Computed example of a mutant assay.
Amino acid sequence: MTNVALRHSPKRRGPALAITIATIALPYLAGTATAYAADDPLKSFPIVIHCQQKDTTHIFYLSRVTDAGLATYVASDRIAGTISLDGQAKAVVGGEGGGNCVGKTLADLRASHQAYDLKPQ
């Protein structure tokens, strides 16, 4: 799922590059997101999403949620994706298609047991 050009680049950049690019791309991907509980976005978005790409499972963790209701998830290998409450998952940085999460909604990811919510104890 990693971009071969980035993986073999002589000037390897850290995860900060992926997050920076995702941050720049977010306003263009946001569209019309449903409002969410700004007080606690963990009530609306899962803390972890896992996606299968060929023979590798990538574990994405919730990194940020914008006021517009767009969540960014990041994983190792400098890959990131976004999803909104009413939209579909999109690979943003470093993906070669995004695996079996791309195009799914939060409801789809939860139904397929690919999303894990934070449960208060």
Rank of each mutant, 00 (worst) to 15 (best):
V4D: 04
G81P: 00
G95W: 15
K54E: 10
T2I: 15
I24E: 09
T72D: 01
S76N: 12
F45P: 03
G81F: 00
F45Q: 04
G31A: 00
I59S: 10
A30N: 03
C51G: 06
I83A: 03
V93W: 08
V102P: 02
K11P: 00
L17Y: 08
H58S: 13
L26I: 13
A71S: 01
Y28T: 12
A71E: 04
T82Y: 12
L118Q: 13
I59E: 08
I59C: 07
A35H: 03
D40T: 01
A89I: 14
Q53S: 12
T34F: 01
A33R: 02
P15N: 14
T20S: 13
L109I: 05
T32R: 11
T34N: 09
S63I: 08
I47L: 14
L42F: 10
I83T: 04
Y61Q: 09
T57D: 08
P27W: 01
S44T: 15
D77S: 14
E96R: 15
D108N: 13
A91M: 10
I79A: 01
A115R: 09
R64M: 14
I19A: 11
H8T: 15
I49R: 00
R64L: 07
A18H: 09
D108C: 04
T57P: 01
D117H: 10
A68V: 11
T20P: 00
P27G: 03
S44R: 09
G14E: 06
N3V: 15
K104Q: 13
K90L: 14
A33G: 02
A22N: 00
E96H: 10
T32M: 06
L29M: 06
T20G: 10
I59A: 10
A80T: 10
T72N: 09
T82A: 10
G14K: 10
R12Q: 12
A107P: 01
G99N: 05
A91S: 13
K90P: 01
V48S: 07
L26T: 15
A35T: 12
A75W: 02
A89W: 15
F60K: 01
T105E: 07
D40A: 13
L109A: 02
P41Q: 03
I59H: 12
V93E: 12
G94R: 06
F60W: 03
H50Y: 07
F45I: 02
H8R: 02
D40L: 08
D108Y: 06
G14F: 11
D117K: 12
L29N: 03
G87M: 05
K119S: 10
D86L: 07
A111H: 11
G87R: 12
G94I: 07
T23R: 12
A80D: 01
T23K: 07
L62N: 00
V4I: 13
V74C: 08
D108L: 04
T105D: 04
V102H: 05
R110Y: 04
I21V: 12
T34C: 06
V92K: 02
D55W: 06
A115K: 00
T34P: 01
A18F: 05
T57I: 13
A107H: 05
